[in-house]
Simulated scan of single mutants.
Amino acid sequence: MSGPDGAAPRTLVVVPVYDEEPTIRRLLDEVLAAAPEVDVLVVDDASPDGTGDVVAARPEPAVHLLRRAGKDGLGAAYRAGFAWALAHGYDVVVQMDADLSHPPARLPALLAAVADGADLAIGSRYAPGGGTSGWSRRREVLSRTGNAYVRRVLGLRVHDATAGYRAFRAPLLERVDALGTRSNGYCLQVETTLRAVRAGARVEEVPIVFVERVAGRSKMDVGIVVETLARVTGWGLRDRLARRRAALPRSS
């Protein structure tokens, strides 16, 4: 793909952060080394550990900082990042965690998938060639079971619908109204995947090895899991009801 007037596409990597000071320097170094052509937007939810100040001190013009008033959830942080990307005319928008679980070295592969025609390229743990490193057996079973539930309930043919490492063509974000999504936590990944598939987008999975964070604390909690189960179940019931209504005979 190319940007306006045949120029190279402008790519923005959106990285939400909250207390990620131990890893943010290395993350920025590795992203810019893997893909020197990209810009990075760090969306900081007023991290008390000074993560935002570390980013603000970076000398690279490709590194941008969006400070928010407080911790308002991953979904809200990504929506703020998407809005910034669209307002600044980027052609490709990447989602990426700050804790180095998403390997920056795989960023070129995601961008290549978009360049080859994908509307959404997902960094997938469960596509052939993907995997995880440093996870307990229990966590892997929970993740795989959750993805199987998403596929079954929503009818998706995506191995890793909950993956948070992904690249969108910017027009797809507008087409699926990504700014109008409602999910607050990691369920955002399922919601945008579902909207993309329903919109007829071309979705490709690029295998990655997801590495357990080496510093800081995971933001995953019971509330995020409950939100995901509740929303996925609700979307599935909604779809089933719509199919039943469509199957009813119409009155003359």
Rank of each mutant, 00 (worst) to 15 (best):
S2D: 06
P4Q: 09
G6W: 11
A7L: 06
A8M: 07
L12V: 08
L12H: 04
E20Y: 08
T23V: 14
E30V: 03
A35G: 06
V42Q: 03
D44W: 04
D45W: 00
A46P: 05
D49N: 11
G52K: 10
V54S: 01
V55M: 05
P61H: 04
H64I: 10
H64G: 08
G73R: 01
L74S: 07
A77D: 12
R79M: 14
F82C: 04
L86F: 12
L86R: 12
A87R: 12
G89L: 02
Y90P: 01
V92N: 02
Q95A: 12
Q95M: 15
Q95G: 10
A98L: 08
D99T: 11
S101M: 10
H102C: 15
A105S: 14
A105Q: 12
G117D: 07
D119Y: 08
I122S: 02
I122W: 06
G123C: 12
S124A: 09
R125T: 13
Y126Q: 07
S136A: 10
S136T: 15
E140P: 00
S143Q: 12
S143W: 05
A148W: 06
R152H: 14
R152Q: 09
V153P: 01
G155V: 06
G155Q: 11
A163P: 08
R166P: 00
D177W: 06
D177T: 07
T181F: 12
T181D: 06
S183I: 13
S183E: 11
N184L: 15
Y186I: 11
Q189T: 12
E191C: 13
T192H: 10
T192W: 15
T193N: 13
L194E: 03
L194C: 02
V197W: 02
G200F: 11
R202Y: 05
E205K: 06
V206P: 08
V206Q: 00
P207G: 07
V211R: 10
R213G: 09
V214M: 11
R217W: 09
R217P: 01
M220L: 14
M220C: 02
D221S: 11
D221C: 14
V222Q: 02
I224Y: 00
V225Q: 05
V225P: 01
V226P: 00
T228C: 09
G234W: 14
W235N: 03
D239G: 14
R244H: 05
R244M: 15
R250I: 14
S251E: 14
